[in-house]
């Protein structure tokens, strides 16, 4: 199909370009916006692969929630990225070296794929490819059976992250008046209004 090939190059091209813009844009807010664009195109690539569920979850979670918080932080903090970048020339060599090492390793991995011929036999197919289930069903069927341990474990990790954030930042502020709606509603006339008979010319 020409169309899907075109769509692939469109999504992939924009994703790579916007990835490049993320690290080169002068304005940090622009960087985050390009990051969002990159996420979005990655979701497009997922759709092309037929992984529609993953695509939508990527948009909902990364673009809809995580990147919003990124954007928040970047907008609120007044980061001078130009100053941060000043030292880039000194560290460029080191960064390049690390990058090249990682690239070389990736090449080795791809080049020597599957060391043992019997590897394929060890790894049973996780989902029977003949099953016509939709994405969502297929994912659910293995997440909650085969990978239930990892899934629930990840849930615990997120719970700990939440507790940690609350422990380290939450402060019970003293002297703040809180609104207790039930108390406001349950006030009766007797405890709020006092009818006083005022004698003429005397006041209270």
């Amino acid at each position: 199909m020409i169309l899907s090939a075109l769509a692939f190059y469109l999504f992939a091209g924009i994703a790579v370009l916007s990835g490049l813009m993320v690290i080169t844009a002068r304005n940090p807010v622009h960087s985050v916006l390009f990051l969002i664009l990159a996420f979005f195109n990655a979701a497009g690539l997922f759709v092309l692969l037929g992984a529609e569920f993953l695509a939508m979850i990527l948009v909902v979670v990364y673009v809809g929630a995580v990147a919003v918080l990124f954007l928040f932080v970047v907008m609120m903090l007044d980061i001078n990225f130009a100053a941060l970048r000043r030292g880039i020339r000194q560290h460029l060599a080191l960064g390049l070296a690390v990058g090249i090492v990682l690239l070389a390793e990736l090449v080795i991995v791809v080049g020597a794929w599957a060391v043992a011929p019997e590897v394929a036999a060890h790894t049973a197919p996780i989902v029977n490819s003949a099953v016509t289930a939709t994405n969502t069903q297929a994912l659910g069927a293995i997440l909650y059976t085969r990978y239930i341990y990892a899934f629930e474990g990840s849930g615990l990790i997120l719970l700990v992250a939440m507790i940690g954030a609350i422990v380290l930042t939450h402060r019970a502020r003293a002297g703040v008046r809180r609104q207790v709606i039930s108390k406001q509603i349950s006030r009766s006339r007797a405890e709020t209004i006092e009818v006083v008979k005022v004698p003429t010319g005397h006041g209270i």
Binding site: F53, M56, V63, T134, T136
Partner: peptide
């Protein structure tokens, strides 16, 4: 008529 219509709307 996609399979993940609800998620699409949510996204």
């Amino acid at each position: 008529n996609i399979n993940v219509g609800v998620l699409f709307l949510f996204a």
